[in-house]
Design a protein around this nucleic acid. Sequence first.
DNA 1: GAATGTTGTCTAGTTGTATAGACAAATATT
DNA 2: AATATTTGTCTATACAACTAGACAACATTC
Lengths: 256, 256
Amino acid sequence: MFHDEDMTNPMKFDFSPIERRAGVAMWKQIAEVLRTELSRAEVSEGEKIPTEQELAQSFEVNRHTVRRAISTLIEEGFLRSDQGRGTFVARAPLVYPIGPRTRFSENLSGQAQEVYGDIFRTTEVVADAYTAELLEVDLGTALFKCESVSYADGTPVIAGTRWFEVSCFPNLPADLRETNSITKIMEKYDFGDYRRKETRITAALCSAHNAELLKISEGSPVLVMESINVNASGAPIQIGRAYVAADRMHLTVRND
Amino acid sequence: MFHDEDMTNPMKFDFSPIERRAGVAMWKQIAEVLRTELSRAEVSEGEKIPTEQELAQSFEVNRHTVRRAISTLIEEGFLRSDQGRGTFVARAPLVYPIGPRTRFSENLSGQAQEVYGDIFRTTEVVADAYTAELLEVDLGTALFKCESVSYADGTPVIAGTRWFEVSCFPNLPADLRETNSITKIMEKYDFGDYRRKETRITAALCSAHNAELLKISEGSPVLVMESINVNASGAPIQIGRAYVAADRMHLTVRND
DNA sequence: GAATGTTGTCTAGTTGTATAGACAAATATT
DNA sequence: AATATTTGTCTATACAACTAGACAACATTC
């Protein structure tokens, strides 16, 4: 079917150089450069990108290599191509504010029509060195580990894991089946005034496991957010680690 | 020479699976997994990691492939190996707080002995679509573009670019030669009360250019920080984009 | 309608990555 | 002192990535 595409003024890309024998396939580096360009604020949905032949010349590679790069961006929802017409931008990234507010849907208000999280697995584990330190509990303490994927308009953007002390939330699995809402559960256990104490951010290459959850290529860049939520008196009650598909969603820190 | 290393209790790694034909060389994926494990809070300098043969069995690859991975981590300063003895952790990552404070050295106080930035190039450019939008100036407005690398204890951690309006800082190049201090220059031009309005964060794979500046492998994950600094009345006076070597330095947002 | 531009698909050759084995050299353990 | 463990280096082979060319199919331009 037809799209309202800008056929007259294809965008110009500012290409970072790519490097052979760097341990990253040429097609993947090219995909990354294109992804970065596509994530810039002034790129609009529907815009036409340079042709496969033009990109091949720009990157000094074979057209087949460019096609391989483009096909991964199509799979990830960034691009759309039509035989005989060209290749077009399919989407722009979301912007997620980092701060004390903890609700995913609230933080993305105005940017996506439908936002929800799917807590697909809750298991009981014991605190290891990592979780014990952040929750300030003893090694071996019983914890609930909740794994989830968060979606914006049907597209996965965050693969996350949260840990809760069993003693603070004894009926968490049943509560989750009932409400699927962390906020409601916090209120039920009188933690309604909980808040985010700190978020630590780094970057990594996406693992195969998270790639499957986020529907992106393994090895794509992801943001890693580790967060600590505390009760009114400042004691940790829940920690989390989230992997963010970096091209679908950026983070922002506003200082007002 | 001899090191005070823990020979008795080599660490256990929690390996994420690696994937063949993912567009990322096996050795690079292994390097990434090791890098991630090495960045965890409870890993200490001097700790011994599993042997090459053990790692080869764990990752189900050839020992040569593991050696290739380890050699990149040695080049980057994360590991040290001694023939006949083993391979040891060389360093832990820094933690950089994101907030209104703008001084690099102040933000890392207590974590590194010597912290400094080297502004190695200042050029005059004109505002493009990107810089015009963030600085709220017209396209074509004259700007100074300053490129720098920031070091902690001699190791590069940030490759950055800042843009300033020429009309606000007419003698910036001479001022930088004199002081090499953004803070002093802000004070000279009566912007001493400037502050950070917003920082936007995403992740990307490191380009060849930044890899050279940061002394890391091209394709390694980097954090990308875009920041806007404003004057007392809220008008943008300087913007910046920084690439952070994600394994050498993490970001944190504290909400107190 | 013809010519040109662009994406999609097929087959095939060259180069780089991963594997494999062997053995030297240094250190740790017995 | 002998043995075991571990890193470091050499040569060689199989498989994956990149390149190359050709041509079909669809759309745009003239």
